[in-house]
Design a protein around this nucleic acid. Structure first.
Lengths: 187, 187
DNA sequence: ACCTGAACACCGTTCAAGT
DNA sequence: ACCTGAACACCGTTCAAGT
């Protein structure tokens, strides 16, 4: 299906193909046989590049962290953008459909693989830091920022899993939530 | 392992055993062979009670919804409890460890089974309604209540999946968030 | 260094036969 | 009505052999 530059494969090719499969069909779509079809090789080839399926997922998680970090710093680097608008752009990105699918799949796998779980925790705290930092620019106290950031990040993760069936919060809703907290006095 | 009242099994016995397995070992722990060991029967017996694994999970999801609803209405029925305290009790319950494990497992399965997914959506909106209603008792406008309820429920679901590695919000934090939103003016 | 092909183990599923 | 036991299919994993 996907044509390749050289006749032989590298681990990256497998990871990319797997990430593609996840996007298209979810966790349970990632079968070694399917990947082999996609890449035009046999199963034995897979086991040359990876010890087992767990190793594949670990590589996928690591690659996903990189992709994620690139996108986030790219957004965050837009210094000319108001902190306000950056927040909205960030949440819009995190909530896009293909992003959601991959993210959920990796989190699914994290349950049975501690290394993937650790990568996921890293991704989460990277996002948390960015949100937390941006909120502090918005004239919030450090305490308020941490609290809202926590709520928002958890809400974002929740949205990843449950975005069907519950009302989707609009960017304006987030604005409301933020301005609400800003107005609140200490304690 | 678990002694039974009668010599023969009902579907309920399988569902309960499966729910137990999930709690102990997560989604991937639920293997038919393991269940058979637990119940002292052979695989053929399983297929007498269920068409396949999917059917088991559908039954588990339905049973979980009942359990969930019982707990929630029980809490909500405590009319003498302040709306405030009820909210905290509710979130404390939803965040308990065994609850989290089952909940996440069922949500995992929901991805590949539309019937389970629907049950999960029902559970979510039942929770949403309770939170929404309780918030309205707290002198919030309907709009504010819907918004905060949405944020809280999503955050709760997010917490289900990511509660390791991120700071855990305390009940007091939720109080803060609520009072913050109450103070916020219209629009 | 990278891949094939055939084998094996594990687990979901089926089914004829038992009580 | 509920269960056994043996068979089969699918898929992850291994490995000797090829280029």
């Amino acid at each position: 299906m996907t044509p390749r530059r050289s006749s032989r494969l590298g681990a990256v090719d497998w990871v990319d193909a797997a990430l593609g499969l996840v996007t298209a069909e979810g966790v349970r779509g990632v079968k070694i046989a399917r990947l082999c079809d996609e890449l035009g090789v046999t199963k034995g080839s897979f086991y040359w590049h990876f010890a087992d399926l767990d190793a594949l997922w670990e590589a996928m998680a690591t690659r996903w962290q990189e992709i994620n970090r690139l996108r986030v710093t790219e957004l965050h680097g837009l210094a000319e953008m108001a902190a306000d608008a950056r927040l909205i752009a960030l949440s819009t990105m995190l909530i896009s459909d293909s992003h959601l699918t991959v993210e959920k799949a990796i989190r699914d796998w994290a349950r049975s693989n501690e290394k993937v779980a650790e990568t996921v925790r890293n991704i989460d705290s990277e996002i948390f830091d960015v949100v937390d930092g941006t909120l502090q620019e918005l004239a919030m106290t450090a305490d308020q920022a941490r609290l809202l950031a926590g709520l928002l990040v958890y809400a974002g993760i929740g949205y990843i899993h449950a975005h069907v069936g519950l009302p989707t919060p609009t960017p304006e809703d987030l604005q409301h939530a933020r301005s609400g907290l800003i107005l609140s006095g200490a304690d």
